[in-house]
Design a protein around this nucleic acid. Structure first.
Length: 613
RNA sequence: GGGCUCGUGGUGUAGCGGCCUAACAUGCCAGCCUGUCACGCUGGAGAUCGCCGGUUCGAAUCCGGUCGAGCCCGCCA
């Protein structure tokens, strides 16, 4: 019997319930106790005259004591039912109360779900935080999500395979966590950033359809949507094209979403599939929030040929850059400080400035009046032209970014769009707007390393028509340069975005050794390095590798979005702080001297002062 | 590595140079109360204001440093 399941029909039953004291109301001769477990609350009544021994115990009871109560279920007196509780029609008339465990006064309110609690305290006493309904509900939601994912994959014939946590360093961008080996002093394991190579080897092994709810580790700075360790739905399929992978994943996501959050509408089916360049042009983001419009507008045509008179624009245009804008509806009355704040936001993300045009609703003679500090340079005609091109309506604010670097323009406007879209309440909180963004550029030039850097994954395949671009300008495959045609190659690579968050990404991989070696060479790996770091998989590809592709989806982010949270800590039972600390267990901590010697290690100290116990 | 914000009884906040012998709410403790469900009433205990240093006749209040937490940039898919 739990604290959540007694109903009117149970009246008369002799039962036993156990749980935590949620709240106690003492009337002297009559004590009410709301007993709580994860299933709900049940009211216990202890009547001094009917059960004197129970009343004596109940007098000592305090919040969060753990009790076992025996008694009879009874309908509550007419007029005293509590409609707020599922069990509100009945109560348990206690015959006996046993204290299973006493409790100190908790450091924060467990029985008031809306009470603000300091983050540090929540993390330090996470086991108490999880007793609170909101946190508990989020973990239950996450559990349902993972269950639904497993069910969907099993139905589709996927095999769940576990892969090792002690691994060799994986060739992805992030810093590895290192685990020293005792059996082989001087050598280390790395914790997986993802099971990438292993799942590809499973494809070579003939597993055909693999999935795993995999723990991944990346030793990088934390953010609201990033922890040192996190969980991915990792999957891989053989004999597939990118369409086949996206089709399956999309169907799986829809099935899971409908099962876990049936009341949240999916904005568009099938999910929009947006080419990377189109996404950057229209939304300035590779993870666009499609719940609202506010798309980027190219002002170049409306500015016309030749000199505009505004030097910033003219210089940018002469340098082959871009002048683009977004229109923030209803923001024409933004204050000076409001504009300054947006300008600062734009600068922080790399813009040199932020121009604006506000169109007031009450222009003279009914004609909307455009106001802008740059009007005196551009002239009224050009201001009207670009305002018209952007579709500005009275009351709107147009925000313009001009830069020689097209990526800066897209990035800044994309971030402004997302920020303002949320601030202005343009995004329906309840809607799930999934979309695919695909055909990412294969590589980005890494000027420090003098090599091409895989945009997403070093094994990603290339569009068949772009295969010929995977060559160097120098002719020597091991001498990449910024001028290589490879910079234009597009990858068979797709990301899934949800409401402006990147949920996951994947690709169809290169499964032919020859092409893989060409791609790795562009990424700056010599033959030797290739064999050192990827020898296993290169060799495997010589034994009959099927074409394959897959995806990895962040379970933490997915859960957080389903739970209306912006921080993945809220859907993790035991997360770490931004400085990577576990405040409950006080990790990380200094190793014991014996541990050093066993591992053949010595702490030589760092230039950082402080923790060196 | 950098920027910003926060740190006051158990908890959440107020106070932001002397009127603070630090306020309010809640929690806690004690007493009363047989139908409440954020029960009520009466009384009580409880913080020297994260830590260190400085400015000042005087600091919770100003300055510097430090520790911790959060947000962001870099980093990271």
């Amino acid at each position: 019997m739990t604290c959540g399941d007694l109903r009117a029909g149970d009246a008369g039953r002799e039962i036993r319930v156990a749980g935590w004291v949620h709240r106690r109301r003492d009337y002297g001769g009559l004590i009410f106790i709301d007993l709580r477990d994860r299933y709900g609350l049940t009211q216990i009544v202890i009547n001094e005259t009917e059960a004197p021994a129970a009343a004596e115990v109940a007098n000592r009871v305090r919040n969060e004591f753990v009790l076992e109560v025996r008694g009879k279920v009874a309908r509550r007196l007419a007029g005293t039912e509590n409609a707020k509780l599922e069990t509100g029609e009945v109560e348990v008339q206690a015959a006996s109360v046993e204290i299973l465990s006493e409790a100190q006064t908790p450091p924060f309110y467990i029985n008031e779900p809306d009470a603000p609690v300091d983050e540090t305290l929540r993390l330090r006493y996470r086991y108490l935080d999880i007793r609170r309904r909101p946190m508990l509900d989020r973990l239950l939601l996450r559990s349902r999500l993972v269950s639904a994912i497993r069910a969907a994959h099993e139905r589709a014939g996927f095999v769940e395979v576990e892969t090792p946590i002690l691994l060799k360093s994986t060739p992805e961008g992030a810093r590895d966590f290192i685990v020293p080996s005792r059996l082989q002093p001087g050598s280390v394991y790395a914790l997986p950033q993802s099971p990438q190579q292993l799942k590809q080897l499973l494809m070579v092994a003939g597993m055909d359809r693999y999935f795993q709810i995999a723990r991944c580790f990346r030793d990088e700075d934390l953010r609201g949507d990033r922890q040192l360790e996190f969980t991915q739905l990792d999957l891989e399929m053989s004999f597939v094209t990118e369409e086949r992978v996206m089709d399956f994943v999309e169907a799986m996501i829809v099935e899971v979403s409908r099962s876990v959050v049936p009341d949240r509408p999916i904005q568009q089916l099938p999910f929009p599939r947006i080419d990377y360049h189109e996404a950057m042009e229209r939304f300035g983001s590779d993870k666009p929030d499609l719940r609202f419009g506010m798309e980027l507008v190219d002002l170049d045509p409306a500015l016309g040929e030749g000199i505009t008179g505004f030097r910033v624009f003219d210089e940018v245009r002469a340098a082959g850059g871009r002048v683009k804008a977004i229109v923030a509806p209803g923001m024409a009355d933004a204050s000076r400080s409001g504009i300054d704040e947006l300008t600062e936001f734009a600068r922080r993300h790399g813009a040199r400035g932020l121009a604006h045009i506000s169109v007031l609703a009450d222009g003279p003679a009914g004609a909307p009046a455009a106001h802008s500090p740059i009007a005196k340079f551009l002239g009224d005609d050009r201001v009207s032209a670009i305002a018209g091109a952007a579709g500005v309506k009275p009351g709107d604010l147009m925000l313009i970014v001009a830069d020689a670097d097209a990526e800066v323009v897209a990035d800044v406007l994309g971030r402004l769009r997302q920020e303002l879209g949320l601030r202005l309440g343009l995004a329906d909180e309840n809607v799930l707007a999934f979309c695919w963004v695909y055909h990412f550029p294969m590589y980005q030039w890494d000027s420090d390393g003098g090599r091409w850097h895989a945009t997403h994954n070093p094994f990603s395949g290339v569009l068949p028509e772009d295969e010929k671009l995977l060559v160097t300008a120098s002719g020597d495959p091991y001498k990449p340069s910024r001028q290589d045609p490879a910079g234009k190659a597009r990858a068979l690579q797709y990301d899934i975005a949800l409401n402006g968050w990147e949920l996951g990404g994947g690709s169809v991989r290169i499964h032919k050794r020859e092409l893989l070696e060409r791609s790795f060479a562009l990424q700056g790996y010599s033959l030797e390095q290739m064999h050192e770091r990827f020898g296993g998989i290169l060799e495997a590809f010589d034994y009959g590798a099927p074409p394959h592709g897959g995806i990895a989806i962040g379970i933490d982010r997915w859960s957080a979005l389903f739970a209306h949270q912006t921080n993945i800590r809220e859907v993790m039972a035991f997360p770490k702080t931004q400085s990577g600390a576990d405040l409950m267990l006080d990790a990380p901590s200094a190793p014991e001297p014996e541990q050093y010697s066993e591992l053949g290690l010595r702490f030589v100290g760092l230039e950082i002062e402080g923790k060196q116990s």
